[in-house]
């Protein structure tokens, strides 16, 4: 109980296991084991989605053609965060970036290991840095770093 008797301090604490499905699993396996970033191509609009998902939400078509995209790409946007939460994988300050990987038609959102906003610029090139001990998580790409 809190010192303040007007409130009840409690938590909602639940362990979840989210089934990844074949698309997510393949993507995570490839980045972890082979350091390859894979996308899927829509049979209708031909867009390559990275990270992959089963259905192209614009065409509502099932996507089945896998395409490897580059480990490098162009930074389209970023922010540097200085607030802190319990679920952040890096200690602030660090950056989040929106990145268009070479060969992809959608962007990937990920961490950028850079804490100075002045050192980041839309249009600059970045490269994926892989985690040494893959755990089949999106964080097997540990972060992107400016080239």
């Amino acid at each position: 109980m809190s010192d303040d008797k007007r409130v009840f301090e409690g938590r909602i604490k639940v362990p979840y296991k989210h089934t990844a499905g074949a698309y997510v699993e393949k993507f995570l396996t490839e980045i972890g084991q082979n350091r390859k970033i894979m996308g899927v191509k829509c049979p209708k609009c031909k867009k390559v989605f990275v990270p992959p998902k089963m259905v192209c939400f614009e065409c509502f078509e099932k996507m089945e053609e896998w395409v490897e995209v580059g480990n490098q790409g162009t930074l389209k946007g970023f922010t540097v965060v200085t607030h802190k939460t319990d679920v952040m994988p890096l200690k602030p300050p660090f950056a989040y970036g929106i990145i268009r990987l070479d060969g992809a038609d959608t962007d990937i959102v990920h961490l950028i290991k850079e804490s100075d906003p002045n050192k980041l610029k839309a249009g600059m090139r970045v490269e994926a840095s892989f985690y040494a001990k893959p755990r089949k998580r999106i964080l097997d790409i540990e972060y992107f770093k400016p080239i």
């Binding site: 604490k13 296991k17 989210h18 998580r137």
Partner: peptide, 30 residues
């Protein structure tokens, strides 16, 4: 497409703190 074997699940533990107001009557009750 070749389906991967296994039924892979990703774990996530939600741990959300709340401070629920209990209301004046409950305060008096306690």
């Amino acid at each position: 497409m070749v389906r991967q074997k296994g039924e892979f699940q990703i774990r996530w533990k939600t741990d959300l703190p709340y401070r629920w107001a209990i209301g004046k009557l409950a305060v008096k009750y306690f």
